[in-house]
């Protein structure tokens, strides 16, 4: 089943007289349960492509379909609601809410979805245990290491039961040990629970773990390799 489908997706940035085509006619299809890395050098258009797939950036041309729903015509509020229900995000800099504990951070997205307190508590504890943070429920982000914070971010992304997870350079700020642990967790979730992951990365450790590698350069897909 196709979860993500882009057709001739383009993004043109205009700055005064300067025009930059960040993404140039990308057509991509991601199926349920894939563990895909979009790779390429800095400025190749990876993040812009991910932003458009995630409904965070406006599309200049082409289309994005998520589980059969075209998101091009959605307004800002509809997109926010769509993201909440369908997409999990993991950011490079973790971006946890600093005033909430690890458990509260995971619960927060479920709160936005209107899930009951009991359900929120149960699922957040389960997810944090799954990512190996069973002893860090009540710890705030500033008391966690980078790797631990990113694991909380993964738990948060999974908490809303999204159709897929978009992870933008998730290991860029992590050391080898933390990267390895985080990748193991995500790979295990992908394998056991068939959760779809889509990364943008230029980290070889992520590339090594991915089962499909889409290489992008100057906004265009130059190779699409399935392992």
């Amino acid at each position: 089943m196709e979860i993500i489908k882009t057709k001739n997706l383009s993004k043109l940035y205009k700055n005064n007289e300067l025009e930059v085509l960040a993404v140039d006619g990308v057509s991509l299809s991601i199926r349920q349960g894939e563990f895909t890395a979009i790779v390429g050098p800095s400025g190749s258009g990876k993040t812009t492509l991910l932003n458009m797939i995630g409904g965070l950036d406006a599309i200049s041309d082409g289309s994005v379909e998520i589980a059969g729903t075209n998101i091009n015509s959605m307004n800002e509020n509809e997109l926010i609601d769509f993201r909440l229900k369908n997409i999990g995000f993991v950011f490079q800099a973790y971006n946890l809410i600093p005033v909430l504990t690890a458990k509260e951070n995971v619960e927060f997205i479920m709160l936005l979805q209107g899930i009951s307190p009991e359900e929120r508590k149960k699922r957040s504890e389960e997810l944090l245990t799954q990512v190996g943070l069973e002893d860090k429920f009540n710890v705030r982000p500033n008391q966690l290491s980078g790797g631990q914070q990113q694991r909380v971010a993964v738990a948060r992304a999974l908490a809303s039961r999204p159709r897929f997870i978009l992870a933008d350079e998730p290991t860029a700020n992590l050391d080898s040990q933390s990267t390895s642990k985080l990748l193991d967790i995500m790979a295990e979730m992908n394998k056991k629970e068939n959760i779809t992951f889509l990364f943008s990365t230029h980290d070889q450790r992520v590339i090594d773990k991915a089962r499909r590698i889409v290489t992008i350069e100057d906004g265009k897909i130059i190779s699409d390799e399935v392992r």
Binding site: G54, I80, D81, L84, I97, L112
Partner: peptide, 16 residues
């Protein structure tokens, strides 16, 4: 601003 942007990215609507 980045934190607020993140909140909107993950699904916190404007009224919230």
């Amino acid at each position: 601003r980045k934190e607020l942007g993140m909140l909107m990215a993950i699904g916190m609507n404007k009224s919230k």
